[in-house]
Design a protein around this nucleic acid. Sequence first.
RNA 1: GUGGGUAUAGUUCAAUGGUAGAGCACCGGAUUGUGGUUCCGGGCGUUGUGGGUUCGAGUCCCAUUACCCACCCCA
Length: 424
Amino acid sequence: MIKAVKGMNDLYGKDAYRWGRMEEDIKMIVQTANYTEFRTPIVEEIALFKRGVGETTDVVQKEMYDFLDKKGRHIAMRPEGTASVVRAFIEHGISVNEPSPFKLFYIGPFFRYEKPQKGRYRQFHQLGIEIFGDDTPQMDAEMIFTACRVLDHFKIDYEVHINSIGCNECRPVYKEKLIEYFSSKKDKLCEDCCKRIKTNPLRLLDCKSCNMKMEYQKVPVMIDHLCGVCSDHFEKLKKSLRIFHVDPVIDPYIVRGLDYYTRTAFEIVADTGGSQNAVAGGGRYDNLVSDIGGPDTPATGFAMGLERLFDMVPEDFYQTPMVFAGYVLCEEAVDDLVHFAKHMSHHPVTFFADYRPKKIKKALQKADKAQISFVFIFGENEAKNKTVLMKNMTTGEQKTYGQHEVMLIVRELMDASAEFYSKK
RNA sequence: GUGGGUAUAGUUCAAUGGUAGAGCACCGGAUUGUGGUUCCGGGCGUUGUGGGUUCGAGUCCCAUUACCCACCCCA
């Protein structure tokens, strides 16, 4: 028995419907905020992620789906969206060809070779937004606010955690202080953290396992060592967020796992039902575009985990659509149903036809199970008189129409639909 | 990569080491062209896979795989 590949899921039926509606709503929200859709390939040269995401990150070191193609090119399936978008931004000269700031969003699948658990899969989906060419803290705030708008739409409770991780000026100075601090306490650090002192000292801050936890209060934190410009940026970010009615928690231990962030870093946490409680995360990355060989361009953005979001959208958030169906009771009536199906296809109602003759009892049973709102019965009598029996499955009312009166029928259905959806 | 749990019918779950069952779902029926409720009928499934212990294994032991959860990390 062949099964789906580990960590990859099928989606069908009601869940697929809800997922589709969720994506529609998300698109509507970000498009209203003037983000335009940006689609990049699922795969890229692996070098892009190594440079963009960072050679030392877990994502690059052990979580990448990569392979050699038939020409021996080293390809990777995208583990995140920012690197690809930055590559495309540079490749198409968007900084000179499009008005600035350039605001975009993407929705799609991403791949990481991790051990699956709740809220974490090997193929997962993200909404991402990125803004190029605007270095203001106000734009950071608007970007975070946009994430909040999405969550608000789905009536989700969440907390916004923000931090500043400085810039090329102040971070190196701070890193030295951090290394100095931790070097004297090596005996209290876990194995991983001892290594991290050299490779990525910032990561020590959000290590949950090593017993430095108790002494976090004394650990020097970045926000106390920001340079003037960064400090000003952070203050204005907080102020702007408050204007947007976003009440942030200042969390000096947020360290993004990807290397490219500068200044603003943020995470949105919520009760996703599992231990993976970060539903969105991101921040500013003013150096990434130039690091990858593009023009010096400030940028900011975030990614949101759609599986984690989906798990929090209430089951009844979306009503299933109203469906109409046609059944035949005998062979002679089949062509009438075909004609009817053709006519119905011209109208904005969801209609399906079952061309297999069956007893009326069976037809109604099937309709009931499929939660059909109105059924159209084509039997011997109807075939003889060129009529159709329409039955309202909710009220039990039924009425016979001439088959030419389709317009009349459709008008009744539209009225019924309007009433149905207005109750939502 | 490291732990813990689980694995039996389409599905959810039962079965003191002694012939594998139930609910739901599904299909059929309860005389004439009317659904939801009710009643009746319909089940041999290599008990995830491979070994072992035993007169006998769904049950005990070992291995393996998959799924779920957690660590790590991230969205």
